[in-house]
């Protein structure tokens, strides 16, 4: 677990990419990890083709949850909402490049679950329009 905290992880933790808010997001989701109180919010702007035009995340939490979310959100730009919904835990683990202890998996997967909820919300909205 101590090898988890490598430079690029700490960099994403201290300088999260795409951190903040969008002026007019099409889809928003938020969740918290009740165990540790970590909070996360994802906002997506969807283009006409149903792809991610822009994306932001916000919240607070540990290095694992923040860095995992930062890397995941960065890679989500330009992707279709459908492809985001199909993402599995492997996508997060590939980003961080190292095993995460079972007790910390919830932290690592918080960003993924909120991103998928936001993508679902985006699809639902597109379907109803």
């Amino acid at each position: 677990m101590d090898d988890f905290y490598r430079d690029f992880i700490l960099d994403h933790y201290r300088n999260p990419r795409n951190f903040g808010h969008l002026p007019a997001p099409d889809a928003v989701a938020e969740d918290r990890n009740p165990l540790c109180g970590d909070e996360m919010r994802v906002e997506i702007e969807v283009d006409d083709a149903g792809n991610v035009a822009d994306i932001r995340f916000s919240g607070k939490g540990c290095a694992i949850s923040q860095a995992s979310a930062s890397m995941l959100v960065e890679s989500a730009k330009g992707k279709s909402l459908e492809s985001l919904i199909a993402l599995g835990e492997a996508s997060v683990l590939e980003n961080v490049g190292i095993d995460i202890s079972p007790t910390r998996m919830k932290c690592a997967m918080l960003g993924l679950s909120v991103l998928k909820s936001a993508a679902l919300a985006g699809l639902a909205k597109a379907g109803s329009e």
């Binding site: 677990m1 101590d2 988890f4 905290y5 540790c36 109180g37 939490g61 540990c62 290095a63």
Partner: peptide, 19 residues
């Protein structure tokens, strides 16, 4: 973050609570 601290201490066998 307290959880990261607890994880690092855990690698040294030190059990503390975070949250």
């Amino acid at each position: 973050h307290a959880h990261d601290l607890a994880s690092i201490l855990d690698t040294e066998g030190v059990c503390i609570r975070a949250g």
